[in-house]
Amino acid sequence: MVFAFFKKEDPGLGHIASRAVGMLHDARHSFDLATLALLDGASFSSVEEDVRATDARINQTEQDLRAELVVHVSVQGANDIGVVMGYTLLIKKIERIGDQAKNILDLAEEVGTIVDDEGGHQLMDERRRVSTMFADAASLLAEPNDEASVNAFIDDAGQVSADYQTKINDLMHSDLPGSVVVPRAIYYRYLKRIVANLRGVVSVVSEPLPNIDYLDDGATDITDD
């Protein structure tokens, strides 16, 4: 460990971005497993340990990176303060995505699988769609200079969130029994939050710091309840 002083590495905060991408891959892993339990009949017990361990790893990484960001400011001064605050927001968003994946697992524990219910295929399609968005967000985080792709992702995520809100609204006024409607509405709510946080992750890369989490009309998009 003493060799940390002599080791030659790229200067700056590049390693924070790499580890944030790692966190995003972990969050996707949790999401995939939790949704398998909820939608595809995988047994809760077979995925629980993995999801919770992955969530704990994400949380620990967030804490470690926060500490490293404070060290960076203490050593390097305030030159990178905007970048440091951006990374602080970014890793918090990824940590929240991990929490949402855990919430989906908790939902699976409560209601079992909902794949055989009406609309089950659509739920699986949405799962695939969101899972792909994890990969896209990770790519953009690793290579943030492709402005067109970043903007396309942000627009797409905004549209997906709006679609999920429409689905939630439809379910609220549905005549289906509560045991069918409620798990779906909650699931879509979690998907919406995950997509909003993925949008936030990519926005951190491109938007000015004061604007992150604020929509064009000035409303905030930070509620994770």
Binding site: M1, A4, F5, F6, E9, D64, V71, H72, S74, V75
Partner: peptide, 15 residues
């Protein structure tokens, strides 16, 4: 040596 100092402090935090 700022980058080396930063790495060293991170190593101390980690271990």
């Amino acid at each position: 040596v700022a980058d080396r100092v930063e790495r060293s402090l991170n190593a101390i935090l980690g271990k």
